[in-house]
Design a protein around this nucleic acid. Sequence first.
DNA 1: CTTAGGG
DNA 2: CCCTAAG
Length: 569
Amino acid sequence: MVSHKCVEEFSLQFPANARAPRSARKKRSFKKEEITENDKTCAIDLLATVAENLLSETGSSHMSIDKPVEDHCLVKEEFPVEDKPLKPATLPEFNPYQGSSMSPCGFSSVISGKVEIEAEGFSHSGGIDSCQAGQDLKPSVDGGAVVLDARPNGVGSLGGSSSRTKVPSMGAGVSLGALDDVHMFSRDDDENFSGYICPRVTKKSPRSVPRVGDRRIRKILASRHWKGGSRHSEAKSWRNYYLHHQRSYPIKKRKYFDHISDSVSDDYRLRSKMQRGSRAVSTMKGPGASFVSSDSHVRLRIKSFRVPELFVEIPETATVGSLKRMVMEAVSTLLSDGHRVGLMVQGKKVRDDNKTLHQTGISQDNTHLDSLDFSLEPSSEAPHLLSSNPSGHVCEELSMCRTSDMDTLFKTEPDLALFPSGSFDKETAADDSKALVHAALTELSPPQPPRHKSNKQQQQQQQTAQRRMRRPFSVTEVEALVQAVEKLGTGRWRDVKHSAFEDADHRTYVDLKDKWKTLVHTAKISPQQRRGEPVPQELLNRVLNAHGYWSQQHMETLALPKPESVLLL
DNA sequence: CTTAGGG
DNA sequence: CCCTAAG
């Protein structure tokens, strides 16, 4: 939001160039909120569960064989006991969806979160209102290979010890119960859960300024990558939103989500089934043969979906909508590039991507084919922190913005910034969330060593990710900036910031300075050469005027050191 | 941390 | 927007 509070009407009079001594400057009013570094990150487990539908013919640990039927290509799936940890929960006898009128081959996926209150601020009671994220995760591809169908209605506790709470039966999506522990899951151990959503309740040492903190974090994490980050969003403790991930996901990758969701989805273990279509699978059951042919195509259906390691830190003041978006973002990015998909056939990793399915044994001719397993593998060893500035904040700002900005604001994407979590330093290891991440990673990381991207690729990705989201200045903001500069001059960006952008956490004085720079440039070029939201010429004229005025002032102060300056005043 | 500028 | 040198 752009606050005009301190910007009084400015006529054509330029105030004297008086700059308060730094000492006199109000100590950074960077909020009362102090974020402590010790913040305990509360965790909310974010899980996506799946209920098997029609196909639930077997016991929990096994998906059984589908026999070939007609020309259907079927692959029997079996999950060895050893896979327990990663094994998706299956709902054998209790299958809420069985017989459901819902989509024939859907599975339900519910992501729910638990909020653990650990930090001071949160010690009383969960800060997040219960809510449910509505993003349905239900990409589906028709003739395609993967069908993800997130259905509504809870999936009850599926056996893991983690099901501490009942699963809210709401639409598929994320649900955060204030204090509800919703661990829906199948994992046998706690480490199995796939994620958390945690409000970050922390206090930083008194003086640590948000922005700084963020930098600090980056340094602490000693991760060269992901530096950018959300310095701004960190401005206010309760406004920090973090999505922790095993890996950080560049915002820009989101655009791939649609595609991804269609092809990759998943969790540490995807169960898939080769099937002919979305018809009742029951008809496909049969003894033995795991494959049939005539149809040289293989259709896979991912039956379960779980989001691995998803951490979200969100202020209790955030809106449900923002949370939903955050989760969706996280999921999207997660799926889009945080992991690579691994394939196992009969327990063996298939690494050669160039092999054909047939060569790999996934064909009608292969009688041994009885196990097909997909896994989502972290693309990097270190977990990452994903932070975002949910729309909640944006909305909050909305009320104070002019209509001209409404559009912009509404469209503003949650500020997804990533920063490195790098390896866990002893220093930071104490952090619960981190520890958790670490543990989770350890636990969930598939045996297969992740294929490392080339350094170049990594850097590229990191670079992309760390850059702050682009946030074009709205006319309103420009107006505020111009006004502030008219009053304060061009060398006092910090003051300008506090004067007119105090509450715009995402605008640093450097941003303002940069904006001014571009404004001046814009004002000088022809309207045809300008891009982006057009800035009223009137404003540009003021920019030019102010720029000229202050430039001159600057010159004078420079030319006339002290004596004259006094006279001038 | 702020500024000022280049990238 | 980022990065850095300077103060």
